[in-house]
């Protein structure tokens, strides 16, 4: 029994690097990311009977990690810095991307269908940099929705947001990301 647990502990270690990088992407704070992974390992060791090779170990660990990330986010969002964030405010109806009559100031270009970009490490570098341009909370809501694929309802419940708040935050996040990607990826030699 003890031997089995040591084996599992060793196997967990081999996933640490990936899990920390994933948590760091979500949390933007290395110490917090490492905490989340540590707690993931503790949960994994405590409930390893449940695992029993039902899925890939990494998939199982990632699922646990997501929950740890949410717990950390939720406890942090109770504090003042995240709650008072600008992007939590109700929509003022104005967006810098549009003119007075709601027309595009800098119209979106045709990106084509550049799925081959997914194979390029430069593409991902640009994508991750552009995510960091977003305010912290906006980036988090965006990744909960688009990276983790949580439903709007789940996100609202977890972060105590109204549906209209969520729509505003996601709209701004998408605007920010596509503007940054246009400038730094599609506008240049890759477009």
């Amino acid at each position: 029994m003890a031997g089995k647990e040591t084996d599992l502990a060793r196997e967990l270690e081999s996933h640490r690097d990936y899990l920390v990088r994933f948590a760091l992407f979500m949390l933007r704070d290395l110490a917090l990311a490492e905490d989340a992974v540590q707690e993931t390992f503790i949960s994994a060791l405590a409930s390893h009977e449940e695992f029993q090779g039902r899925s890939q170990l990494r998939t199982w660990l990632t699922a646990i990690l997501k929950n740890k990330v949410f717990d950390l986010v939720r406890s942090r969002s109770k504090g003042p810095p995240m709650v008072s964030s600008d992007d939590l405010q109700e929509d003022d109806g104005r967006d810098g991307a549009f003119g007075e009559r709601g027309q595009w100031i800098d119209p979106p270009s045709n990106w084509g269908l550049p799925e081959e970009a997914f194979e390029s490490s430069q593409f991902w570098e640009t994508y991750l940099k552009c995510c960091k341009v977003m305010p912290e909370r906006q980036a988090l809501v965006f990744s909960m929705r688009e990276v983790l694929g949580l439903s709007a309802e789940e996100i609202c419940k977890k972060l105590e947001l109204t549906t209209s708040n969520l729509h505003v935050i996601l709209f701004r996040a998408r605007q920010s990301l596509r503007t940054c990607m246009t400038k730094n990826w599609f506008g240049g030699e890759h477009g």
């Binding site: 595009w104 270009s109 550049p114 694929g149």
Partner: peptide, 24 residues
Amino acid sequence: NCTNFSRQIEFLRRASRKVPEAID
């Protein structure tokens, strides 16, 4: 313009779903 916008945000969703793979 708005058709481009709509395609761009759909593309970004497809990209975002691949972030864990990319990190991996």
